[in-house]
Design a protein around this nucleic acid. Sequence first.
DNA 1: TTAAATGTTTAAAT
DNA 2: CATTTAAACATTTA
Length: 301
Amino acid sequence: MPELPEVEVVRAGLDEVLPGAVISKVNIFNPKSFQVSAEDTVAFVNSATILGVRRRAKILLFDLDSAHTMAIHLKMTGQLIYRSSIKEKSFAGGHPDNSLISDLPNNHTRVSFNLSHSTTKDVGNLFFNDMRKFGWIKLFPTTTLSDLPLLQKLGPEPLIGQPQKEYLARIKRRPNSKIKAALLNQEVVAGIGNIYADEALWGAKVNPETRVKDLDDSKLEEILQVAINVMALSIEKGGSTDRNYVDSKGQRGTYLEYANVFRKEGEACSRCGEIILKIRVAGRGTHICPGCQPQVSETKL
DNA sequence: TTAAATGTTTAAAT
DNA sequence: CATTTAAACATTTA
């Protein structure tokens, strides 16, 4: 479920507590979730030290001192929960459910790692929970990451540098695609998912079923800019999941309080007062304000 | 019982 | 070959 802001919140939280930790053991509850051979696990994961946690699109990258990188995708229902002997260092994030605060491992735990910091004596466990089992963990030599089609095909990072030009070029290769489908396509721009696509289109007053070719460059850029603003705000607010927490005090993500259309069906639009509708576009539940986002007549071929 | 879910991936059709 | 759409993946819950 997590989209770019939620994954970024998880990355930042784990990058605070994991670097320097040695992986003393890998516990595999569901082999399909851990797509690393037994040989590679012994050679490059066991006894390796975590150097840092990076992110590309919605993929987390754990750099190890074995010259390998563990890539983790949470997909719809993945979670990463670090339980530490130093309770202030415990952290959890991802799909919001009771697994973030319940005893672990539980029946949704697919993989866990035993970790230890030699300097601080901090000992802990990192749990990868994933109810629907769509998520995965893979291992690659760090130097080959940029060659992987998985990462190489992705569009620009919306929150880094100047993504506008590359985004515009890529989205225009899909003229007949509905704008919402194009935004969800990670090859156009990385990291946008169902929540932020809906929020961006509401912000730019564009109907999600509008074809890309029926939108001019300035409107396409406006949509990206709104998406960037909304995702940056969400990261500030700790993401959309209402039960993320970063320490024992239970700090939570509050972004959904700022959402204008997502899960607001039946409520009045904050901008024009029309009732928010929920429809289906590109195979996904889609929230729109019929007043702000009217259907656009399509150009005939 | 059927539908839907904060996401890709792949097959099938244009 | 490139684009677009629908189905598939696996499980839980409304």
